[in-house]
Design a protein around this nucleic acid. Sequence first.
DNA 1: CACACTTACTTGCAAATGCAACTATTGATT
DNA 2: AATCAATAGTTGCATTTGCAAGTAAGTGTG
Lengths: 143, 143
Amino acid sequence: MTISQQTKRTRTSSLGWMIQRIGGRLNRQMEARLGEHGLSVPQFAIMMTVLERDGLTQAEIGQSYGMPAYAISRAIDHLEDTGLLERRPHPTSRRAHTIHTTPAGQDLGPTLFGIVKDVNAELAAPLSAEERKTFAALLRKIL
Amino acid sequence: MTISQQTKRTRTSSLGWMIQRIGGRLNRQMEARLGEHGLSVPQFAIMMTVLERDGLTQAEIGQSYGMPAYAISRAIDHLEDTGLLERRPHPTSRRAHTIHTTPAGQDLGPTLFGIVKDVNAELAAPLSAEERKTFAALLRKIL
DNA sequence: CACACTTACTTGCAAATGCAACTATTGATT
DNA sequence: AATCAATAGTTGCATTTGCAAGTAAGTGTG
């Protein structure tokens, strides 16, 4: 087999390659939609985490999304600047902060859910209801 | 339903969210493995494309991977510096280049295939042979 | 309580990225 | 042939990212 054929085979049969391409497309779509509200994808991820559970520390947010501490730190800087989140002193530890949504942050929730819903609908469009269930189950196994 | 529950639901039931997380993990694994050979993920993608078909123009490479022209331009700068690829004048157009592997670039092929194979094996590990086929078919539909 | 060790978070700096503007061709229109 | 638009590729500049080092606070051990 030639190198060319082998490469093509490696690429077209690779689960990872396909996931990366789909992920890239997804990312661009999310960036486009979130950009309208001045949010980046990492900022959005943090917003979702804090909307789900108010009062987490930065370290806890990082763990829940697999994001390095410095990225959390800087993303929250921005989110505080734009008034969507706020840092408050941790009740028992003086070095930690707890992170809370502001009213404006709360208000943004439904918009964010809507974006996720739209992007997912577009993603899943080529699949039947049955296939979507199967696909979700397989993703959950891998995750 | 509270905002918290709604957020959790949005996150855990979202195909896109899961794909993003898997994609991120995949990316970190590839970065770690490729880093040993001084390659970034985009550089790797270009190497694979050129190994598959020698003599493409930069624009063609960009289309085949959905990468903007400036990224191709700069990635090839690096790949030329490290001696894996080379630009040659296009036979009919004086503004385009054709991109070719050097002997060193050819030699790297098998290593790259090996990395893709390893990372994919790890990714697919939680799935049975049957499930892998199903998963690949579903990914192909969405791609 | 002094010591080293870990944890929580921040920040300086270098490299990577994205956008928009740029040069140089080529193609299309008249 | 002269003009205008589109294409191929590059580059300056601002923002983002990642690493490594920094500060400050908490933990554990003798």
